[in-house]
Design a protein around this nucleic acid. Sequence first.
DNA 1: TGACAAGTTTAGAATTATTATTATATTAAA
DNA 2: TTTAATATAATAATAATTCTAAACTTGTCA
Lengths: 139, 139
Amino acid sequence: MDKLCEFLREKGVSPSIQRLKILRYLKDSENHPTALMIHHEISRDIPTLSKTTIYNTMNLFSEKGIVSELCVGEGEVRYDLNLYPHAHFRCAECGKIYDVKIDPELFKIKKINGNQVVHTAVYFTGKCRECFGKDKENL
Amino acid sequence: MDKLCEFLREKGVSPSIQRLKILRYLKDSENHPTALMIHHEISRDIPTLSKTTIYNTMNLFSEKGIVSELCVGEGEVRYDLNLYPHAHFRCAECGKIYDVKIDPELFKIKKINGNQVVHTAVYFTGKCRECFGKDKENL
DNA sequence: TGACAAGTTTAGAATTATTATTATATTAAA
DNA sequence: TTTAATATAATAATAATTCTAAACTTGTCA
Ligand SMILES: [Mn+2]
Ligand SMILES: [Mn+2]
Ligand SMILES: [Zn+2]
Ligand SMILES: [Zn+2]
Protein backbone atom coordinates (compact mmCIF):
# COMPACT_ATOMS: atom_id res chain seq x y z
CA MET A 1 0.00 0.00 0.00
CA ASP A 2 2.93 2.32 0.68
CA LYS A 3 4.15 1.62 -2.82
CA LEU A 4 0.88 2.85 -4.26
CA CYS A 5 1.15 5.94 -2.07
CA GLU A 6 4.59 6.63 -3.42
CA PHE A 7 3.43 5.99 -6.97
CA LEU A 8 0.64 8.57 -6.71
CA ARG A 9 3.00 11.17 -5.24
CA GLU A 10 5.40 10.67 -8.12
CA LYS A 11 2.55 11.33 -10.51
CA GLY A 12 1.63 14.53 -8.69
CA VAL A 13 -1.51 13.21 -7.02
CA SER A 14 -1.83 13.49 -3.26
CA PRO A 15 -2.95 10.15 -1.92
CA SER A 16 -6.26 9.81 -0.11
CA ILE A 17 -7.83 6.63 1.12
CA GLN A 18 -10.31 6.73 -1.78
CA ARG A 19 -7.66 7.28 -4.43
CA LEU A 20 -5.50 4.51 -3.03
CA LYS A 21 -8.30 1.98 -3.00
CA ILE A 22 -9.29 2.89 -6.53
CA LEU A 23 -5.70 2.49 -7.66
CA ARG A 24 -5.34 -0.84 -5.91
CA TYR A 25 -8.56 -2.09 -7.44
CA LEU A 26 -7.30 -1.16 -10.90
CA LYS A 27 -4.03 -2.98 -10.22
CA ASP A 28 -5.63 -6.16 -8.87
CA SER A 29 -8.50 -6.62 -11.29
CA GLU A 30 -7.38 -6.78 -14.90
CA ASN A 31 -10.89 -5.72 -15.86
CA HIS A 32 -11.03 -2.50 -17.81
CA PRO A 33 -13.79 -1.43 -15.45
CA THR A 34 -16.32 1.36 -15.89
CA ALA A 35 -16.63 4.09 -13.27
CA LEU A 36 -19.71 2.38 -11.92
CA MET A 37 -17.99 -1.00 -11.65
CA ILE A 38 -15.27 0.65 -9.59
CA HIS A 39 -17.85 2.35 -7.43
CA HIS A 40 -19.80 -0.84 -6.91
CA GLU A 41 -16.70 -2.69 -5.75
CA ILE A 42 -15.13 -0.09 -3.49
CA SER A 43 -18.34 1.11 -1.86
CA ARG A 44 -18.41 -2.25 -0.07
CA ASP A 45 -15.30 -1.02 1.72
CA ILE A 46 -16.28 2.63 2.04
CA PRO A 47 -20.07 2.67 2.18
CA THR A 48 -20.23 6.46 1.98
CA LEU A 49 -18.21 6.55 -1.24
CA SER A 50 -19.86 8.76 -3.81
CA LYS A 51 -19.97 8.28 -7.54
CA THR A 52 -18.71 11.81 -8.01
CA THR A 53 -15.49 10.81 -6.30
CA ILE A 54 -14.98 7.99 -8.76
CA TYR A 55 -15.59 10.27 -11.72
CA ASN A 56 -13.35 12.99 -10.28
CA THR A 57 -10.60 10.55 -9.47
CA MET A 58 -10.68 8.84 -12.82
CA ASN A 59 -10.55 12.18 -14.62
CA LEU A 60 -7.62 13.17 -12.45
CA PHE A 61 -5.83 9.87 -13.08
CA SER A 62 -6.46 10.37 -16.78
CA GLU A 63 -4.97 13.87 -16.81
CA LYS A 64 -1.96 12.74 -14.83
CA GLY A 65 -1.29 9.87 -17.20
CA ILE A 66 -2.05 7.13 -14.69
CA VAL A 67 -4.81 5.51 -16.71
CA SER A 68 -6.06 5.73 -20.26
CA GLU A 69 -9.68 5.96 -21.27
CA LEU A 70 -11.07 3.31 -23.52
CA CYS A 71 -14.01 3.67 -25.84
CA VAL A 72 -15.03 0.26 -27.08
CA GLY A 73 -18.54 0.99 -28.24
CA GLU A 74 -21.41 0.88 -25.72
CA GLY A 75 -21.89 4.27 -24.19
CA GLU A 76 -19.56 4.03 -21.22
CA VAL A 77 -15.93 4.88 -20.68
CA ARG A 78 -13.62 2.14 -19.46
CA TYR A 79 -10.31 2.63 -17.73
CA ASP A 80 -7.02 0.91 -18.34
CA LEU A 81 -3.97 1.00 -16.09
CA ASN A 82 -1.91 -0.69 -18.77
CA LEU A 83 -0.39 2.20 -20.71
CA TYR A 84 1.74 0.03 -22.95
CA PRO A 85 0.37 0.31 -26.50
CA HIS A 86 -2.01 -2.57 -27.11
CA ALA A 87 -5.36 -3.33 -28.71
CA HIS A 88 -8.63 -4.58 -27.23
CA PHE A 89 -11.21 -7.22 -27.96
CA ARG A 90 -14.77 -6.86 -26.69
CA CYS A 91 -17.06 -9.85 -26.63
CA ALA A 92 -20.50 -8.86 -27.88
CA GLU A 93 -22.01 -11.73 -25.91
CA CYS A 94 -20.56 -11.47 -22.40
CA GLY A 95 -19.20 -7.92 -22.59
CA LYS A 96 -15.76 -8.88 -21.34
CA ILE A 97 -12.81 -6.89 -22.64
CA TYR A 98 -9.48 -8.56 -23.38
CA ASP A 99 -6.06 -7.10 -24.05
CA VAL A 100 -4.69 -8.26 -27.38
CA LYS A 101 -1.36 -7.71 -29.06
CA ILE A 102 -1.07 -6.51 -32.64
CA ASP A 103 1.73 -5.40 -34.94
CA PRO A 104 3.32 -2.51 -32.98
CA GLU A 105 4.05 -0.59 -36.19
CA LEU A 106 0.53 0.77 -36.13
CA PHE A 107 1.19 2.58 -32.86
CA LYS A 108 4.27 4.22 -34.30
CA ILE A 109 2.35 6.21 -36.91
CA LYS A 110 2.80 9.88 -36.00
CA LYS A 111 1.36 11.46 -39.11
CA ILE A 112 -1.44 10.25 -41.35
CA ASN A 113 -2.87 12.11 -44.38
CA GLY A 114 -1.13 15.22 -43.08
CA ASN A 115 -2.77 15.00 -39.67
CA GLN A 116 -0.68 14.78 -36.53
CA VAL A 117 -1.43 11.67 -34.50
CA VAL A 118 -1.35 11.88 -30.72
CA HIS A 119 -3.16 8.67 -29.85
CA THR A 120 -4.10 5.44 -31.61
CA ALA A 121 -6.87 3.04 -30.63
CA VAL A 122 -7.63 -0.37 -32.07
CA TYR A 123 -10.46 -2.58 -31.01
CA PHE A 124 -12.00 -5.75 -32.22
CA THR A 125 -15.50 -7.02 -31.48
CA GLY A 126 -16.88 -10.51 -31.78
CA LYS A 127 -17.35 -13.62 -29.69
CA CYS A 128 -14.72 -14.57 -27.16
CA ARG A 129 -13.17 -17.99 -26.63
CA GLU A 130 -15.02 -18.44 -23.33
CA CYS A 131 -18.40 -17.85 -24.91
CA PHE A 132 -17.51 -20.40 -27.57
CA GLY A 133 -16.64 -22.87 -24.81
CA LYS A 134 -20.04 -22.37 -23.16
CA ASP A 135 -21.82 -23.12 -26.42
CA LYS A 136 -20.10 -26.48 -26.66
CA GLU A 137 -21.11 -27.41 -23.10
CA ASN A 138 -24.75 -26.83 -23.90
CA LEU A 139 -24.83 -29.27 -26.79
CA MET B 1 -33.84 10.08 -55.87
CA ASP B 2 -35.35 7.01 -57.50
CA LYS B 3 -31.99 5.34 -57.22
CA LEU B 4 -32.01 5.84 -53.47
CA CYS B 5 -35.51 4.43 -53.36
CA GLU B 6 -34.38 1.36 -55.21
CA PHE B 7 -31.34 1.05 -52.97
CA LEU B 8 -33.44 1.02 -49.81
CA ARG B 9 -35.83 -1.58 -51.23
CA GLU B 10 -32.91 -3.83 -52.07
CA LYS B 11 -31.77 -3.59 -48.47
CA GLY B 12 -35.22 -4.51 -47.23
CA VAL B 13 -36.20 -1.05 -46.04
CA SER B 14 -39.39 0.48 -47.30
CA PRO B 15 -38.64 4.01 -48.40
CA SER B 16 -40.35 6.95 -46.74
CA ILE B 17 -39.69 10.60 -47.37
CA GLN B 18 -37.77 10.82 -44.08
CA ARG B 19 -35.62 7.79 -44.78
CA LEU B 20 -34.82 8.99 -48.27
CA LYS B 21 -33.74 12.42 -47.11
CA ILE B 22 -31.60 10.92 -44.38
CA LEU B 23 -29.97 8.61 -46.88
CA ARG B 24 -29.37 11.43 -49.32
CA TYR B 25 -27.85 13.57 -46.60
CA LEU B 26 -25.47 10.75 -45.69
CA LYS B 27 -24.50 10.37 -49.34
CA ASP B 28 -23.92 14.07 -49.97
CA SER B 29 -22.12 15.10 -46.82
CA GLU B 30 -18.99 13.12 -46.19
CA ASN B 31 -19.35 14.04 -42.54
CA HIS B 32 -19.69 11.09 -40.22
CA PRO B 33 -22.59 12.95 -38.62
CA THR B 34 -24.23 12.32 -35.27
CA ALA B 35 -27.96 11.68 -35.06
CA LEU B 36 -28.45 15.25 -33.92
CA MET B 37 -26.46 16.67 -36.81
CA ILE B 38 -28.68 14.76 -39.21
CA HIS B 39 -31.77 15.99 -37.41
CA HIS B 40 -30.58 19.58 -37.43
CA GLU B 41 -29.97 19.49 -41.17
CA ILE B 42 -33.08 17.69 -42.34
CA SER B 43 -35.52 19.43 -40.04
CA ARG B 44 -34.97 22.54 -42.17
CA ASP B 45 -36.71 20.58 -44.94
CA ILE B 46 -39.24 18.74 -42.78
CA PRO B 47 -39.91 21.03 -39.81
CA THR B 48 -42.01 18.41 -38.01
CA LEU B 49 -39.21 15.84 -38.14
CA SER B 50 -38.70 14.23 -34.78
CA LYS B 51 -35.45 13.10 -33.23
CA THR B 52 -36.99 9.72 -32.56
CA THR B 53 -37.34 9.19 -36.28
CA ILE B 54 -33.64 9.84 -36.76
CA TYR B 55 -32.68 7.40 -34.01
CA ASN B 56 -35.12 4.77 -35.28
CA THR B 57 -33.96 5.18 -38.85
CA MET B 58 -30.29 5.04 -37.99
CA ASN B 59 -30.80 1.90 -35.91
CA LEU B 60 -32.70 0.37 -38.78
CA PHE B 61 -30.02 1.34 -41.31
CA SER B 62 -27.45 -0.15 -38.97
CA GLU B 63 -29.26 -3.47 -38.68
CA LYS B 64 -29.77 -3.66 -42.41
CA GLY B 65 -26.10 -3.02 -43.08
CA ILE B 66 -26.61 0.35 -44.73
CA VAL B 67 -24.42 2.29 -42.32
CA SER B 68 -21.89 1.42 -39.67
CA GLU B 69 -21.73 2.99 -36.24
CA LEU B 70 -18.56 4.75 -35.25
CA CYS B 71 -17.32 5.27 -31.73
CA VAL B 72 -14.47 7.74 -31.79
CA GLY B 73 -14.46 8.82 -28.16
CA GLU B 74 -16.78 11.64 -27.09
CA GLY B 75 -20.10 10.24 -25.96
CA GLU B 76 -21.99 10.21 -29.22
CA VAL B 77 -22.41 7.69 -32.00
CA ARG B 78 -21.46 8.73 -35.50
CA TYR B 79 -22.68 7.14 -38.69
CA ASP B 80 -20.73 6.14 -41.75
CA LEU B 81 -22.16 5.20 -45.13
CA ASN B 82 -18.74 4.05 -46.30
CA LEU B 83 -18.69 0.36 -45.45
CA TYR B 84 -15.34 -0.28 -47.06
CA PRO B 85 -12.84 -1.14 -44.28
CA HIS B 86 -10.99 2.01 -43.31
CA ALA B 87 -9.74 3.86 -40.26
CA HIS B 88 -10.64 7.27 -38.83
CA PHE B 89 -8.86 10.32 -37.54
CA ARG B 90 -10.58 12.68 -35.11
CA CYS B 91 -9.19 16.14 -34.55
CA ALA B 92 -9.24 16.95 -30.86
CA GLU B 93 -9.32 20.66 -31.72
CA CYS B 94 -12.08 21.07 -34.31
CA GLY B 95 -13.83 17.73 -33.84
CA LYS B 96 -13.78 16.88 -37.53
CA ILE B 97 -13.51 13.22 -38.48
CA TYR B 98 -11.49 12.12 -41.48
CA ASP B 99 -11.34 8.81 -43.31
CA VAL B 100 -7.81 7.46 -43.42
CA LYS B 101 -6.34 4.42 -45.10
CA ILE B 102 -4.13 1.94 -43.26
CA ASP B 103 -2.57 -1.41 -44.02
CA PRO B 104 -5.60 -3.56 -44.96
CA GLU B 105 -4.05 -6.64 -43.35
CA LEU B 106 -5.41 -5.51 -39.98
CA PHE B 107 -8.98 -5.81 -41.21
CA LYS B 108 -8.37 -9.36 -42.36
CA ILE B 109 -7.76 -10.69 -38.85
CA LYS B 110 -10.58 -13.13 -38.11
CA LYS B 111 -9.22 -14.67 -34.94
CA ILE B 112 -7.12 -13.11 -32.22
CA ASN B 113 -6.00 -14.82 -28.99
CA GLY B 114 -8.61 -17.48 -29.68
CA ASN B 115 -11.42 -14.94 -29.96
CA GLN B 116 -13.52 -14.72 -33.09
CA VAL B 117 -13.40 -11.28 -34.66
CA VAL B 118 -16.52 -9.90 -36.31
CA HIS B 119 -15.57 -6.26 -36.56
CA THR B 120 -12.39 -4.17 -36.37
CA ALA B 121 -12.15 -0.47 -35.58
CA VAL B 122 -9.10 1.76 -35.74
CA TYR B 123 -9.04 5.39 -34.86
CA PHE B 124 -6.43 8.02 -34.41
CA THR B 125 -6.77 11.25 -32.48
CA GLY B 126 -4.66 14.38 -32.67
CA LYS B 127 -4.56 17.67 -34.52
CA CYS B 128 -5.68 17.82 -38.12
CA ARG B 129 -3.88 19.51 -41.01
CA GLU B 130 -6.49 22.28 -41.19
CA CYS B 131 -6.06 23.22 -37.56
CA PHE B 132 -2.32 23.37 -38.15
CA GLY B 133 -2.94 25.70 -41.06
CA LYS B 134 -5.03 28.03 -38.91
CA ASP B 135 -2.24 28.28 -36.36
CA LYS B 136 0.15 29.51 -39.05
CA GLU B 137 -2.30 32.19 -40.24
CA ASN B 138 -2.54 33.63 -36.74
CA LEU B 139 1.21 34.21 -36.41
C1' DT C 1 -2.58 23.70 20.74
C1' DG C 2 -5.85 25.70 17.62
C1' DA C 3 -7.47 28.63 13.73
C1' DC C 4 -7.11 28.87 8.97
C1' DA C 5 -6.62 27.80 4.11
C1' DA C 6 -6.30 24.51 0.65
C1' DG C 7 -7.67 20.44 -1.01
C1' DT C 8 -11.09 16.36 -0.97
C1' DT C 9 -15.36 14.11 -0.60
C1' DT C 10 -20.19 14.03 -0.70
C1' DA C 11 -25.17 14.41 -2.01
C1' DG C 12 -28.04 15.90 -5.05
C1' DA C 13 -29.37 18.69 -9.10
C1' DA C 14 -28.47 19.40 -14.00
C1' DT C 15 -27.15 17.86 -18.62
C1' DT C 16 -27.02 15.02 -22.65
C1' DA C 17 -27.55 11.13 -25.73
C1' DT C 18 -30.51 7.64 -26.33
C1' DT C 19 -34.52 4.45 -25.71
C1' DA C 20 -39.40 3.44 -24.47
C1' DT C 21 -44.19 4.44 -24.82
C1' DT C 22 -48.04 5.57 -26.99
C1' DA C 23 -51.07 8.19 -29.90
C1' DT C 24 -51.51 9.76 -34.58
C1' DA C 25 -50.68 9.59 -39.44
C1' DT C 26 -49.48 7.08 -43.61
C1' DT C 27 -49.25 3.20 -46.60
C1' DA C 28 -50.52 -1.30 -48.42
C1' DA C 29 -53.64 -5.15 -48.68
C1' DA C 30 -58.10 -7.19 -49.09
C1' DT D 1 -63.45 1.63 -48.99
C1' DT D 2 -62.33 -0.86 -44.82
C1' DT D 3 -58.86 -2.69 -42.39
C1' DA D 4 -54.38 -4.01 -40.89
C1' DA D 5 -49.60 -3.08 -40.76
C1' DT D 6 -45.96 0.47 -40.66
C1' DA D 7 -43.95 4.80 -39.80
C1' DT D 8 -43.77 9.18 -37.47
C1' DA D 9 -44.11 12.27 -33.70
C1' DA D 10 -44.46 14.08 -28.97
C1' DT D 11 -43.36 13.09 -24.65
C1' DA D 12 -41.64 10.56 -20.75
C1' DA D 13 -38.02 7.62 -19.00
C1' DT D 14 -33.04 6.00 -18.52
C1' DA D 15 -28.37 6.18 -17.78
C1' DA D 16 -23.69 8.05 -17.83
C1' DT D 17 -21.49 11.97 -16.64
C1' DT D 18 -20.73 16.74 -15.01
C1' DC D 19 -21.88 20.69 -12.05
C1' DT D 20 -22.61 22.90 -7.67
C1' DA D 21 -22.34 23.83 -3.12
C1' DA D 22 -21.88 22.24 1.45
C1' DA D 23 -19.23 19.37 4.76
C1' DC D 24 -15.09 17.19 5.97
C1' DT D 25 -9.72 16.46 6.23
C1' DT D 26 -5.23 17.74 6.45
C1' DG D 27 -1.13 20.36 6.83
C1' DT D 28 0.70 24.97 8.21
C1' DC D 29 1.97 28.24 11.33
C1' DA D 30 0.79 31.78 15.14
MN1 LIG E 1 -6.00 -2.93 -21.88
MN1 LIG F 1 -15.50 6.77 -42.59
ZN1 LIG G 1 -17.65 -13.68 -24.21
ZN1 LIG H 1 -8.94 20.14 -36.72
